[in-house]
Amino acid sequence: MTARPNARNWSDVQTAIATVAIVTTLGMWNLFAAPTKTVTAQAEQPTVPPTEPPVTSEPALMPQVKIMFTQTAPQTVTAQQPQTKKKKKKNNNNDNGGGGGGGPVSVTQTQSS
């Protein structure tokens, strides 16, 4: 009796098919299992306090541009006479300004009308 030709070959084919099936199964498993792991990891991340300060980026350099709202350069308004005088109480006593030791007082006052 002679062995059938290709008997060994058939066994090899079965082995190859089994190997491909196992590899494919494992590959598919990894393919679909990986995103779940990532999401879980991201969800758990906030509970861990950061150990390093966040890195801040350097501010972008802005071009040196002067914005002019008028045709002439803005001028600094300065008080010609700064407020240094001592304030006086209003005159509600109808003093006519004469006599007295407290000095002359205003006859009346102007205010927003």
Partner: peptide, 28 residues
């Protein structure tokens, strides 16, 4: 005439005193 200008921040006080003759004076 001595006319006071009311201090807008402290209405009971005068912030300045002017000495005026024939004229008009007003504040807005």
């Amino acid at each position: 005439w001595q006319i006071g200008i009311t201090d807008p921040f402290y209405p009971d006080e005068e912030i300045e005193t002017l000495h005026l003759n024939a004229c008009g004076i007003a504040t807005s």
